[in-house]
């Protein structure tokens, strides 16, 4: 297909051909089934491009599918972990941490590309539940808070999480909720306290999200130092940190 023919076809489809040219083209069209096919193809491609509503609906259906599937998964994990056999045992805590790490890793592998470093590399963390089956008010609060986080009710989550001072998991999701609601200063403070605490399983995550807070709040120097540290470590965010470093 040469450019001239493409031009003719497009002009024909756009009603841009004048009387003589139009007649000639129509005559050609009647005799040349190949050309006819080509015109049909071009016209269908145009329709497909303009068929935005269906594409939008498909994306919405896709989002619903993912959201509800995750919820089911979360519900299932809560169920498993609520069984008495796991209650308050160290093994449960370790298992939970492994699940969380796995899910974090998995969700990061699916990062969508969009514009801007922050949106490119930040992805909301799925709160998959891992609450020990305690019945103390604190435990219940935590469970509720994580559900709120999962349902993207970040303000609720913050409300419930900010009093859970000694729980690192709570702190982690508190930091993420601050980040989600653009309370960057508070997010930074929270992630820093996780890092300072040292002996916990969320240091890598906290470092990563802290660096994103710096990127988002345009503190390039701080972001750089931290990202360099991450890219020199064995962090699961190593490669991403390297990529951002190349851009800033």
């Amino acid at each position: 297909m040469d450019t001239r023919t493409i031009k003719l076809i497009e002009e024909y489809l756009n009603d841009e051909l004048e009387s003589e040219a139009l007649k000639a083209f129509q005559a050609e069209l009647n005799e040349n089934p190949e050309l006819m096919k080509e015109v049909k193809l071009h016209s269908e491609i145009n329709q497909a491009i303009m068929d935005k509503d269906s594409q939008k609906l498909r994306n919405e259906l896709q989002a619903i599918h993912q959201e509800l599937k995750r919820k089911q998964l979360a519900a299932r994990i809560i169920k498993v972990l609520s069984k008495p056999v796991y209650a308050s045992s160290l093994a449960a805590t370790v298992l939970i941490a492994i699940i969380v790490a796995g899910i974090l890793f998995f969700s990061d592998a699916n990062t969508n590309s969009s514009e801007g470093i922050f949106s490119n590399y930040y992805q909301a963390d799925d709160a998959i539940m891992m609450v020990r089956s305690g019945t103390s008010p604190e435990d219940i609060n935590l469970k509720e808070a994580l559900l709120a986080y999962h349902e993207k009710k970040y303000d609720n989550a913050i409300e419930l999480l900010q009093h859970q001072n000694n729980n690192i998991l709570a702190k982690y999701y508190l930091g993420l909720s601050y980040l989600e609601t653009d309370k960057l200063e508070k997010a930074i403070e929270t992630f820093q306290s996780i890092i300072e605490h040292k002996n916990n399983l969320f240091v890598e995550q906290a470092e990563w999200y802290l660096s994103l807070c710096y990127v988002k709040s345009a503190r390039e120097e701080k972001a750089k130092i931290l990202l360099e540290k991450i890219s020199d470590s064995k962090s699961i965010y190593k490669e991403k940190a390297e990529k951002i470093l190349k851009k800033i």
């Binding site: 491609i45 329709q47 491009i49």
Partner: peptide, 9 residues
Amino acid sequence: KFKLFQKHF
């Protein structure tokens, strides 16, 4: 067909 066209678009 449209899905294919849209993918390439």
